[in-house]
């Protein structure tokens, strides 16, 4: 059953994201700017992420306590973490060859591969942490291609987010509060 839920949700994310990508590529006929496209993509990602955290993790793991959420979901027969759900979706989108890409990063990452790497990522994550509610937009060049890069705040929407990160042995920060910016979603669209 839980596999079906996961499958359903991941396919929802995937199809929503792909559909929005199709819409976005029609710049010729009316012009969807990279920013509008990135904003649209983010709204889908954020909605799915919140739904997963609240309806699946929050309900089944925290409230009803019928199943755990674990980084090692396969071994523990558990739910995948919200961040993994997000990353697996991003990886699937990449495998399908979509032109845009996205990732979930943080200045206080549990997984050190999720710390900012490029100058724009560093600037963007600092900006959204210091200016709650605001997004960050810039352009950067990576591997010979120019990108429109947008950074959106990833907020601890549920107590599940905060408690898990504060307690995690690899978390460099242990004082996250609900409603706070915990990281950022970085979306890149090639120009």
């Amino acid at each position: 059953m839980k596999h079906k839920i996961l499958l359903l949700i991941s396919s929802m994310i995937g199809s929503a994201v792909l559909l929005s990508a199709c819409g976005g590529s029609e710049t010729k006929s009316g012009g969807v700017s990279p920013q509008v496209m990135a904003d649209s993509l983010f709204s889908v990602m954020e909605a799915d992420r919140t739904v997963y955290t609240k309806l699946i993790i929050g309900r089944l793991a925290k409230e009803e306590k019928v199943i755990k959420a674990s980084e090692h979901w396969k071994d523990e027969k558990a739910l995948v973490l919200p961040a993994q759900m997000f990353r697996y979706g991003a990886e699937r989108v990449a495998e399908k060859g979509a032109p845009f890409s996205y990732s979930l990063l943080s200045l206080w990452p549990v997984n050190k591969q999720n710390k900012p790497k490029t100058e724009i990522e560093k600037k963007g994550l600092n900006f959204i942490a210091e200016n709650p509610g605001k997004n960050f937009y810039a352009e950067e060049e990576l591997g010979g291609t120019r990108y429109f890069t947008a950074v959106y705040p990833d907020v601890g929407v549920a107590s599940a987010c905060v408690s898990c990160h504060n307690k995690h042995k690899d978390s460099p920060r242990t004082d996250f509060k609900i409603g706070e910016v915990m990281g950022g979603v970085v979306i890149r669209i090639p120009l």
Binding site: K74, A90, E91, R92, A94, E95, S101, S103, K117, T118, E121, L142, G143, G144, T145, Y147, V186, R188, P190
Partner: peptide, 20 residues
Amino acid sequence: ADDSHPKSKFTNPRNADRVA
């Protein structure tokens, strides 16, 4: 094997310098 380093971890442009 739950490959720890599948291709999909490297295709994101933020890893362009690593891939180089």
